[in-house]
Design a protein around this nucleic acid. Structure first.
Length: 502
RNA sequence: CGGGCUGUAGCGCAGCCUGGUUAGCGCGUUUGACUGGGGGUCAAAAGGUCGGAGGUUCGAAUCCUCUCAGCCCGACCA
């Protein structure tokens, strides 16, 4: 027996959180870096996870009346110039296509040729190209509302990238809707942030706070930005989804007008909303531990993996047959409306290694079945959320598997909620605020969510910059109590969540 | 775009300062044996234009010049 490390992932979360995060991604086979700067390769296990997220979200979008469509990857540069704030927000991180052909270089290799008359931007988001299209589609109030979503990739030329959290290219969905009235557009914005919160909490088992962004943190060009904010295990905040009320800013810039019932020509009201593969990063940092990825059963690509145990070929056949029948019985069961997802791992790999393979990949339940179990009619069950395995009867396991998954799903949510509660504080003075966010050293896990009254964000800027803290959001619920700003002492109507953020 | 660092086997590194036989090590990989409710043991093997170009030298991974790429620290961000 060689001395195995105590944890499958090194370093541990408390030793070096950012490095732990990278190692989990690697150990769980979710993704790897690519030859292309700032871009990642999403591997099958990671992509299956994303597909499960997509499917659930897509069903929710359809259920709220949206349809999918697809718009071009390229946006003429002039389109981006139309909305002033929008340009300013995205111009610095755009990939620009200036040529359409390659030709041999006299010194060898290739060089771009055929300069484009107007450069094309690789979409950093699609408000402008979609808006230009909507301008043609919208003529009458009878054309409204337009409720469309697109699944796509976008490119933002970020300086510093981290897998899933911030990559130069990422996958996402962006909803773009057009409405006849402000009220209707605002209702849409709220509906979609609620959909995201529902998904985060009930599928990802990740508690989130719904709130609105302050002007400085708003989406460029938006009148109001709603977001869901989650706390990661290092106590930092992660913005997990946004929904924007764009008012008439984009419709004015792009001439999205319709003729109302009274015959009057009016500018339409638009919204946009999106979540991205960043959610995979959020999932990793919400639940995973020092042995690797931990997946909520509802999104796990495989919910139960069966590990057949045998010594020789004759046993192998018997065990495999037995295990196939367990799989079939389990697949006939369902969990929250979907058939159970079961895998058998029959690879020719040593038992211990095989077990750890699935631990690191976050499979919720491991089922170990060998000749002795067949005799006794039992199975050996390992839960990803508990260190110890235990035996139980085959029939009991099968009958209770959905309940077990449900218990695990809720357990993950409660554990994450508890972490958030333990690290959220009501803070009323600037010195307490400083103490809360000051770290004795960089790697120390510290801080959390500070819940504070504030009057205006501008006067807080030096303090926040100093502490590297940002205003995450002004929570929408339970936020009517007036008070005084923790820093300036001015009268304040609302509290905000302050935190260090990704 | 400013400051610091690194490019040597699939991955992680040593060697460089003080040039000198076939460039090492750990992990991983392959094969065999032992083992068998466990990421084990032993043995063998495969795998490298030392980031690229030029220069100094009898001789360069090692010294010099240029170049490319990546990482970290600052301003921006789903």
């Amino acid at each position: 027996m060689a001395k195995a490390p105590k944890t499958a992932i090194q370093p541990t979360r408390s030793e070096d959180y950012p490095e732990w995060y990278q190692q989990v991604i690697r150990a769980a086979d979710l993704a790897e870096s690519s030859p292309v700067r700032g871009c990642m390769v999403i591997k099958p296990w990671g992509y299956r996870l994303w597909e499960n997220m997509q499917r659930a979200l897509d069903d929710m979008f359809k259920a709220t009346g949206h349809q999918n469509a697809y718009f071009p990857l390229f946006i003429p540069m002039s389109f981006l110039e139309k909305e002033a704030e929008h340009v300013e927000g995205f111009a610095k991180e755009c990939a620009v296509v200036t040529h359409h052909r390659l030709e041999p270089n006299p010194d060898g290799g290739l060089r771009p040729a055929g300069a484009l008359e107007e450069p094309l931007i690789v979409r950093p988001t699609s408000e402008t190209i979609i808006g230009a299209t909507y301008a043609k589609w919208v003529q009458s109030h009878r054309d409204l509302p337009i409720l469309i979503n697109q699944w796509a990739n976008v490119v933002r030329w970020e300086m510093r990238t981290r897998m899933f959290l911030r990559t130069a290219e990422f996958l996402w969905q962006e909803g773009h809707t057009v409405h006849a009235t402000s009220e209707e557009a605002i209702a849409e914005t709220q509906q979609m942030i609620n959909v995201y919160a529902d998904f985060a909490q009930n599928w990802m088992a990740m508690p989130v706070i719904i709130g609105s962004k302050t002007p400085a943190e708003r989406f460029p060009g938006a009148v109001e930005t709603l977001s869901i904010e989650a706390m990661m295990q290092d106590r930092k905040a992660l913005q997990a989804g946004t929904s924007h009320f764009l008012g008439q800013n984009f419709s004015k810039a792009q001439e999205i007008m319709f003729q109302a019932e009274n015959g009057e020509r009016q500018y339409a009201w638009t919204t946009s909303w999106g979540v991205s593969t960043r959610l995979v990063g959020a999932l990793i940092m919400s639940h995973s531990d020092d042995d690797g990825l931990v997946l909520p059963p509802r999104l796990a690509p495989d919910q139960i993996v069966i590990l057949p145990i045998y010594r020789d070929d004759s046993q192998r056949l018997e065990v495999l047959q037995h295990v196939e029948s367990i799989k079939a019985e389990l697949e006939a069961m369902s969990f929250l409306g979907q058939p159970l997802r079961i895998a058998i791992d029959d690879r020719d790999v040593r038992g211990g290694e095989k077990k750890w393979h699935h631990v690191k990949r976050g499979v919720p339940i491991r089922l170990e079945v060998g000749p002795k179990d067949i005799e006794k009619g039992s199975v050996f069950v390992g839960r990803r959320d508990q260190p110890k395995s235990f035996g139980m009867s085959r029939s009991e396991f099968i009958a209770t598997a959905p309940a077990l998954l449900d218990e695990m799903q809720k357990g993950l949510f409660n554990r994450a909620l508890q972490l958030r509660n333990e690290n959220t504080q009501e803070i009323t003075t600037e010195s307490d605020f400083r103490d809360f966010f000051a770290a004795s050293d960089e790697k120390e896990l510290h801080g959390g969510f500070a819940h504070c009254h504030f009057a205006d964000e501008q006067s807080l800027e030096p303090l926040l910059k100093d502490l590297k803290v940002t205003i995450r959001c002004v929570p929408s619920e339970d936020n009517d109590e007036a008070g005084t700003c923790f820093s300036t002492g001015k009268a304040a109507q609302k509290r905000a969540i302050f935190a260090k953020a990704y």
